[in-house]
Design a binder for these strands. Sequence first.
DNA 1: CCAGCGTGTAACAATGGTGGTTACACGTTG
DNA 2: CAACGTGTAACCACCATTGTTACACGCTGG
Lengths: 147, 147
Amino acid sequence: MQIKSRFSIAIHILTCIAYFKDQYRVTSEFLAGSIGANPVIIRTVMSALRQAGLVLTRQGSADISITKPLDKITLYDVYLAVECVSGEGLFHLHEHPNPACPVGRNIHACLVPHLEKAQIAMETVLKETTLQDIVDEARERERQNEN
Amino acid sequence: MQIKSRFSIAIHILTCIAYFKDQYRVTSEFLAGSIGANPVIIRTVMSALRQAGLVLTRQGSADISITKPLDKITLYDVYLAVECVSGEGLFHLHEHPNPACPVGRNIHACLVPHLEKAQIAMETVLKETTLQDIVDEARERERQNEN
DNA sequence: CCAGCGTGTAACAATGGTGGTTACACGTTG
DNA sequence: CAACGTGTAACCACCATTGTTACACGCTGG
């Protein structure tokens, strides 16, 4: 099981907007070209980012803007926007433990606190990285490639 | 996306073995009853636990044993045994970023270190809990239910 | 020693989620 | 108003997970 690629696509989208907004008209087709996915996928992810308040778009116009300074948007914000873990938590517990069994009727309650702690630890690390970091690192790598 | 329920099933299996081994004959059917899943699922998960060296079984005989002291088996060991993240990592990156684009050709290299760090943080928490903890907590909850 | 029980595993169906594609209404802009 | 771009629904294809059946093989007790 893996966290869906919409997450990395969303980061890629935002990075591209920041990277190219002064240079090109950033359309969903332009983004699709860089990302290697269908423009509709891009628009769907963009829709999630818009609903999360991270970007502003206008229908009919190739006019995308990011609503906050890049160093105020963390990977966790993006992760929330694309709903990587859909309310149920990262770990999928088996659904029919037997309530007549002393283990079955307690196992979920025993596991949940530990698993939630693990999930939160992962999410906490995502909060430590901002889009500014990613854009800076991309620029830095690009500089090194040139030499 | 969620981590598959085989993980919690595996923990349930091991907890049941520890909890009932002196009291009942612990067969895959017995476990299936407590877990609420098909006996074949149990045997499949058991097969993974066996290959990971966590349990010993004998074909034809309802004779399951755990190979290590419970406080030496962490949730992470179980997580590895059932291959929750299948070698590719927890995060699924989009697969065709455009190498002709300065963002596309660098985005994966930029993201991987951050995402791996998040995954490792989650796994580190799993290492902090042992099966002994789970069994103890299940017994404790059972005691409280009785009153 | 063999009948009944239990495990190990292959094969296949059912389900659900993810990603891809087409289609089209609607807004924007020159 | 024509060309372009977005927003979204509808549908398909694919794959992973789970459920189920089937059967070979090993163990154990009378």
